[in-house]
Amino acid sequence: MNRFALAFRLPVIAWQGLFFLGPLFFMIAMSFFLVKNYRMEEAFELKNWARMLTRGYVWDSYWYTFGMAGLATLVATLVAFPAAYALAFRVSEATRRWAIFLLIIPFFTSYLVRTFSWYVILAESGAINAGLGTVGLGPYTMLNTPFGTVVGYLTLTLPLVVILQTVALANIDRNLVQAARNLGCPPERTLFAVIVPLAKAGLIIAALFCFILSFGDFVAPYYMGGSKPPTLPILIIDTTKSGQQWPRAAVVAVMMMLTLFSIAAASIWLAYRKRSSA
């Protein structure tokens, strides 16, 4: 290998090794460190793990986070699908490109500010309750509820889910859909027996991204869900920022990563497995 090729490879490997792998491996190691007199000491002890895994509040938090992220994934998938279907099959190529450009914009705009806006819109004195009040309904409490958390998660994930589903649906072979229709297959049956199975991999990957983003997000459950109970990301923040217990926060982070790896592996298996029976 010549110097030219190495000049492109080595700096990237060094930089990412030092600042991507380094932090991740150090965090895993840190979960075995000890904290004495507010100072972290190198050690290899299972104390942090034993402590965190035996606390009820950690598991409450774990299953709550898992459940809410799962709920957000389900809602996002169902809400996004008709929109993605419309973009894939019912609009022109140019309109679709414009819509996808619009859907990319929120990805690059402050999620924090968008969440704060929802806060204002959904408050008991906010826009929605003001509107409902004029027809004699409400006010409804929407903030600091699981509903608020899901709205927050969707703010983060919905644009991405719509984009990924649209790409998945737009890429399926139209001839197969047309063949089913020509052979007299009714529209609903075409949808569930032809279109959804053909787009399956993309739909599952979209759901996977939604789960990963929701599971790791602290803004929605904190500002819109009222943090009761705290989700795992909030637990990491509290443990790191106020408790100075970095090793315990690392335990939570490693738990989250193991969970996400399992979910990702399962999703990818589900998305790409060959059907054994016809």
Binding site: V12, F20, P23, L213, W246, A250
Partner: peptide, 27 residues
């Protein structure tokens, strides 16, 4: 693995990257 080294960071939740970066950089 070389490509994974540069492509993987966005798949890891930011809060985890935040804790890992804080711990490593201060170390």
């Amino acid at each position: 693995p070389y490509l994974a080294l540069i492509l993987l960071p966005p798949t890891i939740p930011l809060i985890i990257m935040a804790l890992a970066m804080l711990a490593w950089l201060s170390w």
